[in-house]
Write a protein that binds this DNA or RNA. Structure first.
Lengths: 129, 129
DNA sequence: GCAAGCTGCTTCCAAAAAGTAAGTAACTGC
DNA sequence: GCAGTTACTTACTTTTTGGAAGCAGCTTGC
């Protein structure tokens, strides 16, 4: 058993913080399929706001996980693609996908409080009402 | 190239949403080491607020990822432990850990805007000032 | 037998992040 | 020169998180 209460590895904390920001996992998953443009990402994700997508892309670019390429058209287009560091993330995404396939029930979304506020049995009392 | 713009698998979306809530990955990582009590989790994570920890534990319990066991002491204690579904998550956490070890630079935290507001090269202009 | 401490949460309030919608900039086509 | 497209940004609202204090049920000290 764990006996020392070691303070988690700071690298792991950084990575968990990254994936702990909303939409990061989904964005990465899509980019695993290949480069993608802003509008295409918006469309594929469906429910993300452009404001937040823009923010995430900047975050991920700043962290060296993806790169932004501008093709000065004339029909100007920008494209986001994973760097080596970003590509290396595929194993995480892949395992997450496998876990989801095995364990996530499609019937019960369970997303952010929808449909299941509290499945808790007892109302957190110790002894009596 | 991807040509269909398939709408991501909803199971994956659910899983990504789960991990996309702040602290979820860290909580799971700690519980991988074995059962843990509320106060112990607070201590090990260090910077999470008790309010949010409580919320996350309820979420994860509602989703069947962990279970709460109350040992009615007398020195009463509650313990959180992973279910089979939760244990199965170890591969994801493991890959995330491996990625972090290989790719995360300890010197540059890059967490939520700290130290790197924008490493962006050009100020997002198309033609001229 | 009662104040003081511990664990495990919950409540209240302020700050930060995400959602919504409209706006902007550089084009294209008409 | 006006509508449409792409890629964002800005302003404003709602939700989520953080921080700290409160509270319930015990135990210990005196």
């Amino acid at each position: 058993m764990h006996d020392d209460l070691s303070p988690l590895c700071s690298r792991f904390l950084t990575a968990a913080d990254l994936l702990g920001r909303r939409w990061t996992g989904v964005i990465l998953r899509i980019l695993m399929d290949g480069p993608c443009r802003f509008g295409e990402l918006t469309e594929r994700i469906g429910t993300i706001s452009e404001r937040v997508l823009s923010e995430r892309l900047k975050d991920l670019e700043a962290e060296g996980i993806l790169e932004r390429h501008v093709d000065p058209g004339p029909p100007i287009r920008s494209e986001y693609r994973l760097t080596e560091k970003g590509q290396a993330f595929w194993k995480v995404i892949d395992e997450l996908g496998k876990w989801a396939e095995r364990w996530v029930d499609v019937k019960a979304p369970a997303q952010k409080g929808v449909g299941a506020k509290s499945t808790r049995a007892a109302p957190r009392k110790r002894k009596s009402a």
